[in-house]
Computed example of a mutant assay.
Amino acid sequence: MPPLPPSLPPFDPRTVPIIGVDAHLPPVAPAAQAPDALRRRFATPPAWTPEIRREPPFMDRPPAQAAVLVPIVMHERPTVLLTERTAHLSTHSGQVAFPGGRTDPEDTDATATALREAEEEVGLAPRQVEVLGELSTYVTGSSFIVTPVVGLVAPGARLTPNPHEVADVFEVPLDYLLDPAHHQRHLLRWQGHEREWFAMPYEDHGRTRFIWGATAGMLRNLYRFLAA
């Protein structure tokens, strides 16, 4: 296959063909999603292998370190807090994402980056997050080396989204995201090249939240970690 082009053509990921749904894989048991079970899992991680480590590059740029916060809200039925990025941002505009971003020089580690970015983007104070640990790094097609930092958040945490970066903040049930019956595989073919990704569309009060790309890939790795 020839080298990947420096960029992909504009496309709507919702219209890209679905080539499979992983309903044959078992969901993570509800008991394993409880806060104490999550604490134990991160305290003594199992042997596991991330399913996705790197996306095919589609942008010619130097690699950059970044981190995201995967905030699990401790409702009776736990949820994951996600954002919709504003349409004018230079990267991943309009997409569903975790709070997070590029590492700053003053950040001491990935956790510091994730907590700082979450506070800047959605107003989630670091003291409101109980950090559990990290998943393996995930390299995006735009050359960001992303460390997902998983944390617990109490329900009712006060949020003040930054309107410059965040168009919306919403929650998706954790058990929905950890059920592979909701994991779609999409395949884009273009000029002899192929790019495959996961998507996890979620119906939210009459609106489809289309979770795909890097965010879905990191959630898939979280599934693999908790199912191991």
Rank of each mutant, 00 (worst) to 15 (best):
M1T: 13
M1P: 15
P2L: 05
L4S: 15
P5C: 07
P6H: 02
S7F: 09
P9R: 07
P10C: 04
P10R: 02
R14T: 09
T15W: 10
G20R: 04
V21F: 03
A23M: 03
A29Y: 10
A29C: 13
A32E: 07
Q33N: 09
A34N: 09
A34Q: 15
P35W: 12
D36T: 07
D36S: 08
D36E: 14
L38A: 04
R41H: 14
R41A: 14
F42Q: 08
A47P: 01
T49G: 06
I52W: 03
E55W: 03
P57S: 04
R61P: 06
V68A: 01
V68H: 03
V73Y: 05
V73K: 14
H75W: 03
R77F: 03
P78I: 05
T79H: 13
L81R: 15
T83V: 15
E84Y: 06
T86P: 14
H88N: 12
T91A: 12
H92Y: 08
V96W: 04
V96R: 02
P99G: 06
G100M: 10
G100V: 05
D104Y: 06
D104L: 14
D104T: 08
P105I: 01
E106V: 03
E106G: 03
T111F: 01
A112E: 04
T113K: 13
T113M: 05
A114W: 08
A114E: 04
L115R: 02
A118H: 10
A118N: 11
E121Y: 10
V122Y: 06
A125D: 12
P126G: 02
V129P: 07
V129D: 01
V131I: 06
E134D: 12
L135T: 03
S136A: 14
T137M: 12
T140H: 00
S143M: 11
S143A: 13
I145N: 11
I145T: 05
I145R: 13
T147A: 02
P148H: 00
P148T: 01
P148Q: 02
G151W: 03
G151H: 04
L152C: 08
L152P: 03
A154R: 15
G156E: 02
A157F: 00
L159T: 11
P163V: 09
H164A: 15
H164G: 13
V166M: 10
A167D: 09
F170K: 12
F170Y: 08
E171I: 07
V172M: 10
V172I: 15
L177M: 14
P180C: 09
P180G: 06
P180E: 03
P180N: 04
A181N: 10
R185Q: 11
L187W: 02
L187H: 08
L188C: 08
L188H: 02
L188A: 08
Q191H: 13
Q191R: 15
E196M: 15
A199S: 15
M200G: 09
Y202I: 01
Y202R: 00
E203T: 07
D204T: 05
D204C: 10
D204E: 12
H205L: 13
G206K: 00
R207S: 11
W212P: 13
G213F: 14
A214P: 05
M218S: 08
L219M: 12
R220Q: 06
R220T: 04
L222N: 01
R224T: 07
R224I: 05
F225I: 07
L226V: 07
A228V: 01
